[in-house]
Write a protein that binds this DNA or RNA. Structure first.
Length: 401
RNA sequence: GUGAUAGUAGUGUAACAGUCAGCACGCUGGUUUGUGGUACCAGCAGUAGGGGUUCAAAUCCUCUCUAUCACA
């Protein structure tokens, strides 16, 4: 109990160091389920699991925090069931911090789907109060509002929850982007009001982040940064289709919003991390937290990250014929259990034979790779030589493959 | 040895004598962003061989080869 009281009065985020040659930062977040050192790459575990891995694997990888998804968990198995288990941590037997996404992104991603019509009705419709959508599982109708998205996240019990937002596609005209942004701002306030009714549903404090939108329009991004920063959020996220998808645009967006976001709150780019280099670029522009499905999804399809210093490649496709007889580990310098125990030829064979362990061993490697890179980045920031690390990963000639 | 049946990418199959011989697996690459747990995109590869009939043959005729079955 004393511990809990201690947590209560400790600041959520402490900025520990700023790199002298860039905007890179090192910090720490305190939650009831443990501390999270930043910069941090957060593993995506949409459906209460990091695909192909279990809690033993995650513990061995020293994963600091994982994500869950409000949309998916609401549809299946439902927040009430998880609530009855005492929350997501107990349900999935994960003792460390969890962040849940609010479901706002699904409004965007479902809306983009080609088969956006089901029974001649749109899969998603947005109004001022919320979003009505159809389940991708069984077509049943559901509705999220800012208040319900927060209530669901209270029941799920993540340490960090996200305000409900609308992520507009880059193709949306400026007028619509502005309307959606203003809607997101209203939903941000409503999310906060709903959250403040019950900030510790399971007996420990849940922190809440607001999300900046505004697509690729500088004045909208600045307005959104100002608005969201003015609210009583514990952290600030930067959302949008371009963020992560287009790193050049992402850099611009970060440079617009960075001077506006308070320094003493964690900065979170949602969806960044297709490539290890993208994480470093985001860090360079002042970001503390990221999440991305890419490292795990790429792993499941045989795309494995490698140290770029040797052959200027950031990843290899282990299913390529040239690896059939390659007895080297995926990456000579990698300390992950996959690289310590298995060869490229073996991984190649497992993929070729469509064995499930191919996915698991590859996922372990890619996750270790990302987490290790973040540990290196943190050390570099603390030593004021982050730009050296950045150079190694982002020389001009570096190609994705 | 005699007879019957059958030979279409590496494998399994589709195509009335009439589009550029289709499909699946396979193989070779590529893609992946607040998840797609086997996905998506592109490419490779074939009428057993030789003659003949026909405006036109995978398709009809004939020989050779091969396979399977039946009979000595």
């Amino acid at each position: 109990m004393q511990n809990r009281l201690l947590w209560w009065h400790m600041p959520f985020f402490e900025l520990q160091h700023k790199d002298k040659n860039s905007q890179a930062r090192a910090g720490i977040m305190h939650t009831n389920h443990g501390d999270i050192e930043t910069p941090v790459f957060m593993l995506v575990g949409t459906q209460a699991t990091v695909k192909t891995l279990d809690q033993t694997d995650l513990a061995n990888l020293a994963a600091p925090i994982i994500l869950g998804n409000t949309y998916h968990l609401h549809l299946r198995p439902g927040e009430d069931l998880i609530n009855n288990f005492g929350g997501l941590h107990k349900f999935m037997n994960w003792p460390k911090p969890i962040l849940t996404d609010s479901g706002g992104f699904q409004v965007f991603s479902l809306g983009l789907q080609k088969n956006a019509e089901l029974d001649n009705k749109k899969l998603v419709s947005i109004d001022e109060d919320g979003v009505t959508f159809r389940s991708h599982i069984d077509g049943s109708r559901h509705r999220f509002t800012a208040e319900s998205a927060i209530e669901i996240q209270h029941k799920l019990g993540a340490d960090i929850i996200m305000a409900f937002d609308e992520c507009t596609p880059d193709s949306a005209p400026e007028k619509y982007v502005q309307e959606a942004m203003e809607r997101t701002h209203r939903w941000a306030e409503q999310s906060l009001v709903a959250h403040q009714k019950n900030t510790a549903h399971h007996g420990y404090r849940q922190f809440i982040f607001g999300i900046i939108q505004g697509s690729n329009y500088q004045h909208l991004r600045e307005a959104s940064a100002k608005y969201i920063s003015g609210l009583d959020f514990d952290g600030i996220a930067i959302g949008g289709e371009s963020v992560g998808y287009n790193m050049s645009a992402t850099k611009d967006i970060l440079d617009w919003v960075n001077p506006i976001i308070p320094e003493n709150k964690p900065h979170y780019t949602m969806g960044v991390g297709l490539s290890p280099a993208d994480l470093l670029i985001a860090i360079e522009h002042g970001v503390d937290m990221f999440d991305c499905v890419a490292p795990t999804r790429l792993a499941r399809h045989g795309m494995l990250f490698v140290d770029p210093t040797e052959d200027k490649k950031l990843r290899i496709n282990i299913t390529n014929a040239k690896f059939a007889k390659d007895l080297n580990p995926i990456d000579k310098n990698c300390a992950c259990s996959t690289c310590q125990n298995y060869s490229r030829a073996y991984l190649h064979h497992l993929f070729n034979a469509q064995e499930m362990s191919a996915m698991r061993l590859s996922t372990i490697h890619n996750i270790h790779f990302m987490l290790d890179l973040m540990r290196q980045a943190r050390e570099a920031i603390l030593a004021d030589n982050f730009t050296e690390l950045l150079k190694k990963w982002t020389p001009n000639v570096l190609r994705v493959q």
